[in-house]
Design a protein around this nucleic acid. Structure first.
Lengths: 253, 253
DNA sequence: GCAAATATAATCATATACAATCAATTTTAC
DNA sequence: GTAAAATTGATTGTATATGATTATATTTGC
């Protein structure tokens, strides 16, 4: 039995019983116990089960199947905290842009508290998250589907964005630097982000501290674009001071 | 054994077993293992299976970002059969419209077999279904999200549709009648469907027999709109004859 | 709290699968 | 009928998966 099927077997066994021993897996799969151990480690890192001494138990926490792979969601807590701060900047009756980054995504789950809000986005996970809350009006910008980014891009998307106008834009970045400005991993992602920022009255950059004073391959704007930078408390004080001295409006969790 | 037949054999074997080794394919197909490897690589890129070390497993449907509630999917088998018939009308390199009905939705899962296909839709479940298959190009028409229909509507959507042009449109209807034409449960759904039909060279109406000679509350077009009506074999022969005598191009499963 | 039993992790060795390159064959096009 | 293209197969080096062994950590019984 090879790896893929073995993983399925392990998951299936865990769906039937609340706890399964290594030995049980070994006999079911006809492999050595070290191999099972390795499989369990892998599956645990994917959030599909929890290892115990002697075996494994099913993962009780609901797997958040909103669309991003779990490895795309590292720094989850920092990102959540940043978004808790960001949501306090939103007011009733606002129209907001949300771009398609993973940081901004966490903002979506905090939006249903508003009674009247309009969200404009090109991100499918954001739409998915807001779907159960019909009182939040969602406008999805169309375009060509990028299956890996789970969002819509292309000239059509760019054109459409210019037709909408928002009070506030919440955007992400792969890198932020005083000298180099904002950078992104994807050219087309950058294009959408830039258009959103230009069409909004206020621009908020949501960005965990690991990305500050880093640069990614595509530079698309100076820091002038943003009105406020929101990051987490892990940011080194020296960098924080430097940003403040350059008159960057920066707040931390 | 020729390539096409070999691919079918590979798919068939994987429908019967959860895991098939390279060696098994080799003996079944009487070709070298490198050839099998090449076939598997190709089929994997088409989203029809998943390669493993030593062989392949059937493609596991990954968790869906969006989907219909299962109770919205009654007449599942009829609809699937209708779509199997419909897919035979699609050719390589086509650009097709798909509207947001549940019947048309079943067509999505049959599309990854095409190497080069462009799909234009306003339906989120269709997008979700095609997400794991990046080789199918998807253009999502933007607009205002309707959370119950899981699709996008509104003036923006209508305007955008006029900018795209497709070879074939696959549409649904809540009711079809010789005298009253096509009808829908939702005004805005009808608007999108109509625009798609007008912008396509050929229009195919996918519609299970329970909806034939029924009407729903919003009538939006005569039957002239469609080039072919595809329904299931449960349709009463008397109605079938009547449609044929009126020169409606109708085929059944 | 300590020791025995067991589970786990780390390192290494080996077998197997895989990809890349090139050669041979078949098919297709003109 | 010949050239070009596509398909298939053989060979070699590389990558991956698995298992054995040894050392470390954790649990359990007293």
């Amino acid at each position: 039995m090879t790896q893929e099927l073995r993983k399925k077997t392990i998951i299936r066994l865990l769906e039937q019983k609340d706890e399964v021993s290594i030995q049980e897996f070994v006999t079911q799969c006809n492999v050595s116990e070290i191999t099972i151990r390795r499989d369990l480690t892998l599956l645990e890192s994917m959030g599909l089960l929890k290892r115990t001494h002697g075996g494994a138990v099913p993962n009780t926490t609901i797997p958040e199947l909103f669309g991003f792979e779990s490895n795309a969601l590292d720094k989850r807590n920092q990102k959540r905290d940043i978004c808790k701060l960001a949501v306090s900047l939103i007011e009733e009756n606002d129209t907001i842009y949300m771009d398609c980054g993973t940081t901004v995504f966490f903002l979506a789950s905090l939006l249903p508290r508003f009674k009247n809000l309009r969200v404009i986005t090109n991100s499918l996970p954001v739409v998915s998250e807001l779907m159960p809350h019909p009182h939040v009006k969602v406008y999805l910008i169309g375009g060509e589907l990028d299956t890996s980014l789970k969002a819509l891009y292309g000239p059509m998307t760019d054109n459409l964005l210019s037709k909408y106008k928002a009070d506030k834009a919440f955007i992400g970045a792969a890198g932020v630097s005083l000298s180099q400005g904002l950078s992104s991993n994807h050219e087309k992602e950058a294009s959408v982000t830039l258009k959103m920022a230009e069409a909004a009255d206020k621009v908020f950059l949501l960005c965990d501290s690991s990305k500050i004073e880093k640069t990614s391959y595509f530079h698309y704007s100076s820091l002038d674009l943003i009105d406020q930078l929101i990051t987490d408390k892990e940011i080194p004080p020296s960098i924080l001071e430097k940003y403040k001295s350059k008159n960057i409006n920066i707040i931390t969790t």
